[in-house]
Design a binder for these strands. Structure first.
Length: 429
RNA sequence: GGUGGGGUACCGAAGCGGCCAACCGGGGCAGACUGUAAAUCUGCUGGCGUAUGCCUACGGAGGUUCGAAUCCUCCCCCCACCA
């Protein structure tokens, strides 16, 4: 068995592990699982770390299990939350679980002969369990005294007014029970997760030991922030999702391209499957030729391909080259339409551009590049607004039909990298 | 329950009758420099067909005043100490 923990270590994926976990994983083919919460209908960049942990586990010959929390999602994990969660409806949780399942498929190899990935949903067992059985067989192993000492519970008890409901208080038991159930059904002995899951994971380990006498193990990953302290996968404009309808492949690609140099080098280790010497090589290339953004590019290409496939990557590249490489000049309207499928757009009747045209301020607000007319005027005054790549001078500027590319589009840009497309549609004002 | 201190824009925090759409810091946006980095520097940071104009806004509701974020009354919420 190759050394999974050693790989976690050099990649910066290791926050903490239980005693003996490294030896356990090194000594044979094990079954490892990670739980994914279906609170949203898509995973986001923040979930990529545990996914990659599972990917590495599989590459090292272990059996990976992705557990979708169709059951636990109905309860809500209090870890890291300061307030009680709103309960998901049964249908929502099921739909979300299904969507997440599809996203996980892209990362893991389900067809492997030796160690195919498996997908499980804990609703399969949690949904059928009988209350009385659960309390007798599982509840008996938990001391409330200890549960009260758990960080996630204590914080909620101290926060006073909201407190914690019995429902969320029980969450720990359910997740512990998941581990036990996977141990019984799939011989799973290792759980991976974010470091906020430590308490839940150790609870599962304890339960397995009490019920079966077997020592199971846990490995937790660090909670990452960018070098500027922002939670990974969050930007000013919102979360970066894996779902292409929520975050377009182009935006997804751009998220990685825009990483700072330091972050990009870390991401190389955390998110790509490049070997150690390759990481070093890319790092050196990046240092020697910073403008080429070798590290950012490598991460962006790799992740976009993995999440959005060859097609998504091609589109993201095409758009990026057009928007940041050369100019828009020389592109046909069809090419523009294609490049900008991922960029926000608005529609304006062609007739409004007739004569002396329509005001750029209004176009900006319409395309949501500016929150208000005042903001649009300020942006123009600051020199940060471009129509078809030409800087707009003066707040009174107007756009006319003559400027429209092929009579079909206007390309608005705010700053260096915020684009919006105005589609001109038939009809008068 | 008592006493004291507070609630101001995205956050922190000044202002304490007109000069207040509200100092300052952070954040955000834009510009310069660069490499679609970082750091640094500059400008902007309520809305409105740009207006010595109007509207909205200093916890909420009333009131005093020519005029209130600023004073008064009641209410709500937070914090500290006491019970």
């Amino acid at each position: 068995m190759s050394d999974l923990i050693e790989e976690f270590r050099w990649r910066g994926l290791l926050q903490d592990l239980t005693d003996g976990a490294a030896e356990h994983l090194a000594a044979g083919q094990r079954t490892c699982y990670v739980g994914f919460d279906p609170t949203a209908s898509s995973l986001h960049v923040g979930s990529l770390l545990p996914i990659m942990a599972l990917v590495h586990a599989q590459r090292h010959g272990h059996h990976p299990i992705a557990l979708v929390g169709g059951g636990t999602g109905l309860i809500g994990d209090p870890s890291g939350k300061t307030e009680e969660r709103r309960l998901l409806s049964l249908e929502n949780a099921a739909a979300n679980a299904e969507a997440i399942r599809a996203q996980l498929q892209r990362f893991l190899d389900f067809g492997s002969r030796n160690n195919p990935a498996r997908m499980r949903d804990n609703l399969d067992w949690l949904g059928e369990i009988r209350m009385v059985d659960f309390l007798r067989d599982t509840g008996k192993h938990f001391r409330v005294n200890e549960m009260l000492r758990k960080e996630s519970v204590r914080r909620r008890l101290q926060s006073g007014d909201t407190g914690i409901s019995y429902t969320e208080f029980s969450y720990l038991l359910l997740q512990a029970y998941d581990f036990l159930e996977l141990h019984r059904r799939e011989e799973c002995t290792v759980q991976l997760g974010g470091s906020d899951q430590w308490g839940n994971i150790t609870a599962g380990i304890d339960l397995i030991r009490r019920v079966t006498g077997v020592s199971a193990h846990g490995v937790v990953l660090p909670l990452l922030t960018t070098s500027t302290g922002v939670k990974l996968g969050k930007t000013e404009t919102g979360t970066i999702w894996l779902d292409p309808t929520r975050t377009s492949p182009y935006r997804f690609y751009q998220y990685w391209i825009n990483a700072t140099d330091d972050d990009a080098l870390r991401y190389l280790r955390l998110f790509t499957l490049l070997e150690q010497d390759e990481v070093v090589r890319v790092g050196e290339a990046a240092r020697a030729e910073p403008a080429a953004r070798h590290a950012q590019r490598a991460v962006a290409e790799d992740m976009t391909w993995r999440v959005h496939g060859e097609d998504g990557l091609t589109r993201a590249r095409l758009a990026t080259r057009a928007l940041f490489g050369g100019s828009l000049e020389g592109l046909t309207a069809d090419e523009i339409a294609d490049i900008f499928t991922d960029v926000p757009w608005s529609e304006v009747p062609l007739g409004e551009l007739a004569g002396d045209g329509t005001s750029v301020v209004d176009l900006l607000v319409g395309a949501r590049l500016a929150g208000s007319k005042s903001a649009a005027r300020r942006a123009i005054e600051g020199g940060g607004i471009y129509v078809n790549g030409r800087c707009v001078e003066g707040v009174d500027a107007r756009a006319t039909a003559r400027e429209a590319i092929d009579g079909r589009f206007l390309v608005l840009r705010k700053g260096k990298k915020n684009y919006a497309l105005v589609r001109l549609i038939r009809g008068g004002p």
